[in-house]
C-alpha cells in the first residue's frame, strides 16, 4: 500500500461498545488493522462500555464466538501504541487498569524496549485529545 510521501493525518477511533453483544468492537478492530497500512497517526479511545473490549481473561469457548481480544496485543506491531482509556468509564464499571490487558509496544529506537500502550485519561484530557484530530471515527 502507500508508503512514504502523502500527508499524515491524525485519526482517532472511538470505541464505546462492549465486545460480543454487537459487531461494533470487532468491526472497529478490523478497520484499525486495515487502516494501519496507510501509516497515519492513529490513536484509539475506549469510552463507556468500550472499556470492556480490553478486559483481561476473555474466554469465548462457551458462546461459540471467536475471542478476538488477543488481537489487541498485536496493535503494537502495527505501530499503534496510543491507546487511551477513559478513567470515569472504567471506574463506573468497578474496574481498574489491572483488570485490562497489558498492551505494550516495542520501541525500536531503544533496543526494542517494551513500553505500555494504554494511558488512563480524564474527561478534560480526552476532550483535548479529540480536538487535536483530523478525523474521528466512531464505533
Amino acid at each position: 500500500m502507500e508508503e512514504g510521501g502523502g500527508v499524515t493525518k491524525k485519526f482517532l477511533y472511538v470505541n464505546r461498545r462492549a465486545p460480543y453483544g454487537s459487531i461494533y468492537a470487532l468491526e472497529s478492530l478490523e478497520v484499525v488493522l486495515i487502516g494501519a497500512a496507510f501509516e497515519q497517526d492513529v490513536s484509539l479511545a475506549f469510552i463507556d462500555d468500550g472499556v470492556y473490549q480490553l478486559k483481561k481473561g476473555q474466554a469465548t469457548d462457551g458462546i461459540g464466538m471467536k475471542n478476538f481480544s488477543p488481537t489487541y496485543n498485536a496493535l503494537g506491531d502495527y505501530d499503534i501504541n496510543k491507546i487511551y482509556v477513559d478513567k470515569d468509564s472504567l471506574e463506573q464499571r468497578g474496574l481498574t487498569l489491572d483488570d485490562l490487558m497489558n498492551l505494550t509496544w516495542e520501541d525500536e529506537n531503544e533496543n526494542y524496549a517494551e513500553k505500555p500502550s494504554i494511558s488512563l485519561v480524564n474527561s478534560e484530557e480526552l476532550a483535548a485529545l479529540m480536538e487535536q484530530q483530523d478525523v474521528v471515527l466512531s464505533f
Binding site: 464505546r16 469510552i47 463507556d48 470515569d88 474527561s123 480526552l126 476532550a127 483535548a128 479529540m130 480536538e131
Partner: peptide
C-alpha cells in the same frame, strides 16, 4: 444509551 451524556461530558 448514554451517548448524549458522554457527549456532553466531553464537549468543549
Amino acid at each position: 444509551t448514554n451517548s448524549l451524556e458522554t457527549c456532553l461530558r466531553l464537549v468543549r
